Amino acid sequence: MAYWLFKSEPSTWGWDDQVAKGDTGEEWDGVRNYQARNFMRDMAVGDRGFFYHSQTEKAVVGIVEVVATAHPDSTTDDARWECVDIKAVRGFEKPVTLDQIKADERLAEMTLVRNSRLSVQPVSSAEWQIICAMGDTKP
């Protein structure tokens, strides 16, 4: 299993919206960055990801699971863009903020710390465990 981080602006699509989609999940559409798209192409059904609220909150707020592998993004006719489908698994007991992540030296090499603009990014197994522990949340 691989681990990922999905960033979303809560005013556009927040954790509550994701939870409301239930087990069918939702397309992670609208990504227009080649590196982020390529990460989605690498995803497998069952991979887990952090759901991260960007903008003002800047925090990991939940865990999602990939339920469909990369397929054409329904929001465009441009064949270059693909997306995966994800479903909510569980919310974090305590959201873990970007400031907390940056303050933990064990996470200094995390993509979120080094390239915070990337909307879909990989997370190492060690980073996954550390952030889940910081949020008092079962991995």
Score class of each variant (00 low, 15 high):
G62D: 07
G62Q: 12
G62M: 10
I63M: 11
V64F: 09
V64S: 02
V64R: 08
V64P: 12
V64D: 09
V64E: 12
E65R: 14
E65V: 07
V66Q: 04
V66A: 11
V67P: 06
V67G: 05
V67T: 14
V67K: 05
A68D: 11
T69W: 02
T69Y: 00
A70Q: 02
A70Y: 01
H71G: 02
H71V: 02
H71C: 01
H71S: 08
P72L: 02
P72K: 03
P72V: 03
D73G: 03
D73M: 05
S74D: 06
S74T: 03
S74G: 14
T75F: 00
T75V: 02
T75Q: 01
T75S: 06
T75D: 00
T76I: 07
T76V: 06
T76S: 04
D77T: 15
D77N: 15
D77S: 14
D77E: 15
D78Y: 11
D78A: 09
A79Y: 10
A79E: 15
A79T: 15
A79D: 15
R80D: 13
R80H: 13
R80E: 13
W81Q: 13
W81R: 13
W81Y: 10
W81I: 10
W81D: 12
W81T: 04
W81P: 04
E82G: 13
E82P: 03
E82Y: 08
E82S: 11
E82I: 09
C83H: 00
C83R: 01
C83L: 02
C83F: 01
V84L: 00
V84I: 15
V84C: 08
V84S: 03
V84Y: 01
V84K: 01
V84G: 01
D85I: 03
D85C: 13
D85L: 05
I86N: 03
I86V: 15
K87Q: 07
K87V: 02
K87A: 14
K87E: 03
A88Q: 05
V89N: 08
V89G: 10
V89F: 11
V89A: 05
R90K: 13
R90H: 08
R90A: 12
G91P: 07
G91V: 05
G91D: 07
G91H: 06
F92Y: 06
F92I: 05
F92E: 03
E93W: 03
E93Q: 11
K94V: 12
K94T: 14
K94R: 14
K94G: 01
K94E: 13
K94Y: 07
P95F: 03
P95E: 06
V96L: 06
V96W: 06
V96F: 06
V96P: 07
V96G: 07
T97W: 11
T97G: 12
T97Q: 12
L98T: 07
L98P: 07
L98C: 06
D99A: 14
